[in-house]
């Protein structure tokens, strides 16, 4: 069973839908058309590019290429975490924190998944490694961005509470533990909801893709369960790591809260 191949004409016909939507936007003066066309062009361009990269990548079995592409993905994900910070203040090493947390969490879950759970040969085959790493990374990235945002907003609004607890002799860890917990819970909600509603409200994209490509539904479902478990685990651990590291960065070696180390506008 192979997927029914799409021709260029098929894609262009689907593109007509976007043009139709854009025309409607012009007609109704919604002002959406420009963004819409740019985004549609980006989607087509970026995905075609990725298609070429993946084709080239899948043709090799050199693990160095996998590591290189994986590192690039990590860098982009860490940068995205920085860009998603909406808090007025952010602590300086957001990028490094996100990078380290995503690397440790997603890379170890990926290796475990490939070596133990899937067990394909060779285990670093890019056809498995890259898409799975992308799924882990994408979700963990959203989680880490949410967690750091919640942490920073809470540190800003609850500065006096943290300082009061420090005054009473609590350690930095204890003084922010409530805020950390709130941040973890907030950041894990999307992932937990995705597990809770999988298959009921929405058919997960990977599973749908596999089914379209001809995989028997039960096989596709098994992969989806595996992926959801690994996504949840890597997201959760990445969040905890990022919160640990970032919390430390808020305090100095005397365990004082150093708001002066935060800087305005996270988007630098």
């Amino acid at each position: 069973m192979t997927v029914h191949a799409l021709s260029h004409w098929d894609l262009m016909a689907a593109g007509l839908l976007i043009i139709l939507l854009g025309a409607t936007s012009i007609w109704l003066e919604l002002g959406l058309q420009r963004q819409l066309f740019v985004a549609a062009l980006r989607t087509a361009g970026q995905l075609l590019l990725v298609g070429f990269v993946l084709s080239a990548l899948f043709a090799t079995t050199n693990p160095l290429w996998v590591v290189l592409v994986g590192t690039l993905m990590l860098l982009i994900a860490a940068r995205e975490v920085v860009h998603r910070q909406t808090s007025r203040l952010a602590y300086k090493p957001t990028f490094a924190t996100a990078f380290v947390a995503l690397l440790l969490s997603c890379a170890s879950v990926l290796v475990l998944t490939l070596l133990v759970f899937i067990g394909n040969q060779p285990w670093y085959a890019p056809r498995y490694a890259i898409p799975i790493f992308g799924m882990l990374l994408g979700n963990a990235m959203t989680g880490v961005a949410l967690a750091l945002n919640t942490l920073m907003q809470n540190v800003l609004t609850r500065t006096r509470e943290i300082e009061q607890r420090l005054m009473l002799g609590e350690s930095r860890q204890l003084a922010v533990v409530d805020i950390q917990r709130a941040s973890i819970r907030n950041a894990m909600i999307p992932t937990i909801n995705a597990m809770a509603t999988a298959g009921v409200v929405s058919l997960p994209g990977m599973m749908t893709g596999q089914i379209l490509a001809g995989t028997p539904p039960l096989e596709a479902v098994k992969y989806q369960i595996l992926i959801m478990f690994t996504i949840t685990a890597s997201t959760g651990f990445a969040i905890m790591l990022a919160l640990r590291v970032s919390t430390r960065a808020l305090f100095d070696e005397r365990q004082r809260l150093r708001m002066d180390r935060l800087h305005r506008d996270a988007r630098t």
Binding site: R160, E161, E163, Q164, L166
Partner: peptide, 19 residues
């Protein structure tokens, strides 16, 4: 360590906080 010092040298701020 900072927390040890602050447990010994206790500051009552003008505005106390209850969490």
């Amino acid at each position: 360590p900072g927390p040890d010092w602050r447990r010994r040298v206790a500051l009552l701020p003008a505005e106390v906080v209850w969490w």
